[in-house]
Design a protein around this nucleic acid. Structure first.
Lengths: 203, 203
DNA sequence: GTCTATACGGTGATAGAC
DNA sequence: GTCTATCACCGTATAGAC
């Protein structure tokens, strides 16, 4: 499905889009980084717009692959923390997402449709999963729809905080702890246990 | 401090930057919307970069003015919900923030320094205030530094969610409820009042 | 001081010709 | 593929009107 050439171009595009945004990127720049000509890129991706959309799909696929071994939904806080940890080690993925989002809020194609649909879809699915798991009220007291929005907002915001933070490595843990509280799955918030079961590398 | 002319230019710049980003905006476009020439704009703001930085300061000042009547820190969740409610009714403010942030994560000036410093400063101040108020452990069980990062991430993420959401009006309430849980100041997850005390004009 | 009008040098992206 | 024409923009003048 994804030829080596295609993937090579997608990886080059990922870097260039992350560095210079969509508007700021020329197909020539992607071609140069991938080691071929503009015509070569256009052979695989008929337009810059299509290249970006395929790149976003590629990005989601990478993230999904990384979570493939987990049993999603048993430990939401852990799932999202793991996803964030993955992105922390692949800054281009988060950067391109942020860049596309910014172009979406200005109403520009092609990002606009993608971001709106993705946001709506994620909220809807997460809400449904939370209802299935907890009913109409989470252990934290939040209703599932509110919690889903808050969780996604936290994840999106974390993307941007760690991108400009010296110490990006602490964000997976932040996500894990904050989501545990938000959902109410916090097993031990009490001062009696100094050693939580999380892989805290230190404080 | 801010002449009428300056403010007029800033408001025009706010709209144009929000619509087209920093790179995509020409001084001519700002000048045209403000009703003068490029030279007129450059008379007040010696460069495009400076125009953006002053615009960001202007944006913060607007937000601060809007919260001037509150006794900040007594009710953090309410404070932030109010701030979000304000921005929901001024989409250009949130949009320009998002756009600038995206340009910052690609390492581009002038946004980069501003965003990094603002993020660091906000986290530091909020952490200090939380420690002063709650000590080294919030009622939710989170430590103040983690909570501060989570709160700011939630706020940043909410900016972007509501910008692409049909129903932006629900986000102030989401922020209020989610922050109450995150901080542990959740007094009563009451199902009885769908009408918070915020000045939501409604939709 | 607050602008307008005009113009110049420099840049970076784009498009066409060779 | 390189070279060149073109374009849009930034920033910096200058001169002058109110």
């Amino acid at each position: 499905m994804v030829s080596a050439r295609r993937q090579q171009i997608l990886e080059a595009a990922l870097e260039v889009f992350a560095e210079r945004g969509f508007k700021g990127t020329s197909i020539d720049a992607v071609a140069e980084r991938a080691g071929l000509t503009r015509q070569g890129v256009l052979h695989y991706f008929p337009s810059k717009k299509r290249l970006l959309l395929d790149l976003l799909a590629f990005r989601e696929e990478l993230a999904r692959e990384h979570l493939a071994g987990r049993r999603l939904g048993e430990d939401w806080a852990g799932d999202f923390a793991e996803a964030v940890a993955f992105e922390v080690h692949h800054p281009s993925l988060a950067t391109v997402q942020t860049v596309v989002l910014a172009e979406a809020v200005t109403g520009q194609e092609p990002a606009c449709g993608y971001v709106r649909e993705r946001s709506r879809s994620l909220q809807e699915h997460l809400t449904a999963h939370l209802i299935e798991r907890y009913g109409d009220r989470l252990p934290s007291g939040l209703d599932p729809r509110t919690a889903a929005a808050a969780v996604l907002a936290l994840i999106e915001g974390v993307h941007q905080l760690w991108l400009v933070d010296q110490d990006a490595e602490r964000y997976p843990r932040i996500v894990h702890e904050a989501l545990s509280v938000l959902l109410g799955t916090d097993s031990a918030p009490e001062p009696h246990l100094p050693q939580p079961q999380l892989p805290l590398t230190n404080g």
